[in-house]
Nucleic acid binder design. Structure first.
Lengths: 349, 349
DNA sequence: GTACGTATTTGGAACGATCCAAATGGAGCC
DNA sequence: GGCTCCATTTGGATCGTTCCAAATACGTAC
């Protein structure tokens, strides 16, 4: 604890070895808990390590051993609570494995993403977890990451041509299954005229969710009206503004599967302004299970993706890959869980 | 781009040098954009670097140069949007400076914090930004960080005895001024009976905010009733549960300064359950300006701390310290800004 | 006393980049 | 030719750790 060198040079194995009258190799063995070293020697060295306030230089060790003790994590938008939770989950597992997380944020810009990947890769991470920016191109990402570093892609697909030789692991959410379940749930509640509300048509998650909705409707043979599929920005404000579109033509829907929770909450607002009581006169579901969903009035039926658990899972997948670099690439689609609350009421009698 | 060594050894300066018929030193000069090297040589080397898909090994360079290219960031709770924003701000600036962020999360546990600091320090960061876990002890943190690595403490104070020899920079929020302003605003609206609601009494931020509240009340000579200071967990749920406590005795308050936004939103819920309309029958303010504050009904008057800007500022302070290690320690208290919205209505006539 | 086995320790050469002092090769001048 | 001057290049040592093959010490059995 007491620092004999308050501002002197950094303490190295050499200093410890000299002070104990042993060789550097012996100190190194002590540091790595080798059973080879004598009990007394070990005690003497350990005491000296403490006394001089030695800190291990992992970078030097990694250089020599050609190993890595870090994982790079590149997030499209860290400020988004969903991804913050995800990052926390990743860091949990990475930390448990005795490694550290190198963080990078791309702010949804493929250019920034390239720069960040380039910078992180120079630090020699053992692997990379990437939640791609929208529009991030597969070839470019692979060029930046290189063939040497395992890659795990989370949440979105990389766009553009997929080079066949390159294989990476991926972890995605089962958007389609989720939307299908939500739709089926509304159908089970007795609804027949169900809308799909909100989201941006081009994004892969929106396409997948809409596909799930259509699938569920087709499965029971219910017709769908064109004006039941409403696009809007994935924000509360725009969702509230677009609520009207549902009622522009007959027949009006009695329920809606919403793109996500933000949109659902916005729609609630829009409904209230039209004099409809959400959860009573009109049923709806969300997606994500954000903190607010449980607290809204009425509380929101939604699909929980458990971002922290996904983060842990992503990290585990990558660590697994480090252990077994030649295993087949894995593409895991994590199920999402329907959380039934008050907003998905039966239709009015 | 084309990788001649799809799974061969890592490409090093040595390989490039050999392929170009120059020495390692020359390649190294090219890598660092030295003006010493001949134009043609440079072109030849750069071409070869590209051809072989060379990636710079920054760890090796740092070892030799005794420099660092990373900043460690240890957050008490990364999943909290406030700190996620902060982290994003830090990473922005660190990235702009060509460095990378080493991430660690302590989950509000001083033990975890110790472990995380110990692990990160081994990677030789140039400096550390720490948002301490509640109850984190100054001596222990300093022991883990060592005297060699500059430390910047954000948001909270380290508890326990403060060793005089150790100096670190700090960046805090002006909790007291914020709460004082919020209280003064409610007073200006015409309220006389104002409560301070929520938060945990022991935490430094809660103490500071309460002090600001009391100060503002004393400044105008308004009396304060004991049951107007209600403690609760800083969560929505517990806040909703504790709302009653405000009305257990006479006289009941007509407004409340809340510990933070989560608590304020919870209190709104609790009020609604008692049949009181927040923003009409009862005024309240929050602290933090989380995304939801603007969207709640009624929209929430609160104190904006601009966490992303604080993150940028913290990183800048630390980078400044790296440039000038011997400068006086700086303790900056960042002002917070009162954002007036609908929840801080005047009292009923 | 020699040989052998076990337990422990060790010097030197890596890892991949950079620093440094010194070498190289012209061009220009006397 | 010999000289200096300049631009450019270079081998070897070094950063802090680990690997490796070999050395040392000490019983114990023959």
């Amino acid at each position: 604890m007491e620092s004999n060198t308050p501002l002197g040079r950094k303490v190295t194995v050499r200093d410890i070895a000299a002070a104990c009258g042993v060789s550097r190799a012996t100190v190194s063995l002590v540091l790595r808990d080798s059973p080879l070293v004598n009990k007394d020697t070990r005690a003497r060295v350990e005491e000296e390590l403490r006394r001089q306030g030695y800190v291990y230089n992992r970078a030097a060790a990694n250089l020599r051993r050609r190993t890595s003790s870090s994982i790079a994590l590149v997030i499209n938008e860290l400020a988004n609570p969903f991804f913050a939770e995800f990052a926390a989950g990743v860091d949990d597992v990475v930390g448990e494995a005795g490694m550290v997380t190198l963080l990078g944020s791309s702010s949804e810009s493929p250019q920034r993403e390239q720069a960040v990947l380039g910078s992180l890769i120079e630090h020699g991470p053992g692997g990379i977890i990437l939640s791609p920016a929208e529009g991030s191109d597969a070839r470019q990402v692979l060029a930046a990451v290189g063939a040497r570093t395992p890659l795990l892609v989370f949440n979105r697909e990389l766009s553009g041509e997929q080079p066949e030789y390159a294989h990476w692991d991926s972890l995605a959410l089962d958007n389609q299954q989720g939307a299908r379940e939500a739709t089926a749930h509304l159908i089970a509640q007795g609804h027949r005229r169900i809308a799909f509300f909100g989201g941006h048509g081009d994004s892969s998650s929106c396409r997948q969710r809409r596909a799930g909705y259509r699938e569920a409707m087709k499965a029971v043979g219910f017709p769908m009206a064109p004006h039941w599929e409403v696009e809007c920005l994935p924000t509360r404000l725009d969702a509230a503004r677009c609520a009207e579109a549902l009622f522009e033509a007959d027949p009006a829907p009695t329920a809606a599967v919403c793109y996500n929770d933000a949109v659902a909450l916005g729609l609630m607002h829009g409904l209230a302004e039209r004099g409809l009581a959400p959860g009573q006169d009109f049923a709806l579901t969300g997606f994500d299970d954000i903190a607010e969903a449980a607290l809204a009035t009425p509380s929101l039926t939604t699909l929980a993706a458990a971002p922290r658990a996904r983060g842990r899972q992503a990290a585990q997948m990558l660590l697994q890959r480090l252990r077994d670099p030649d295993a087949e690439a894995r593409r895991i689609v994590a199920p999402v869980k329907l959380v039934i609350r008050a907003s998905s009421c039966p239709p009015l009698a």
